[in-house]
């Protein structure tokens, strides 16, 4: 799993937690479920979270990607079921756009 992308996501959870009463535990971030059964977000919170991730990815890699597209939603294994799967999805999207994705944070 790409640590650099994971660290971007970690930063966003820190921001999200600042405005939440009930903090989301990021102890085991890669296995955290975002949406669905045991998911930490409802659909609106998910969209807001994903938009922030998109912004962070764009800032980091200078490449716009969509995490709320039909493609993201219709993946056989949902990228929203675990953070690690979201990281993989982002990495695949970046590679597809021709962005060299380095492993280190």
């Amino acid at each position: 799993m790409n640590d650099r992308i994971l660290s971007l996501i970690n930063n966003i959870f820190e921001e999200v937690n600042e405005r939440r009463e009930e903090k989301i535990s990021t102890e085991d971030l890669p296995s955290l479920a975002l949406y669905g059964e045991h998911g930490v977000f409802d659909s609106m919170q998910l969209v807001n979270f994903l938009t922030q991730v998109e912004e962070a990815v764009e800032d980091e890699y200078d490449q716009e990607i969509s995490l709320t597209s039909e493609k993201a939603v219709s993946q056989r294994v949902s990228p929203f079921s675990r953070v690690s799967r979201l990281v993989d999805f982002i990495e695949a999207e970046l590679l597809e756009s021709g962005v060299a994705v380095s492993e280190t944070a």
Partner: peptide, 8 residues
């Protein structure tokens, strides 16, 4: 438009 909540 998005595919999760329709619009954001």
């Amino acid at each position: 438009a998005n595919s999760i909540t329709g619009q954001a």
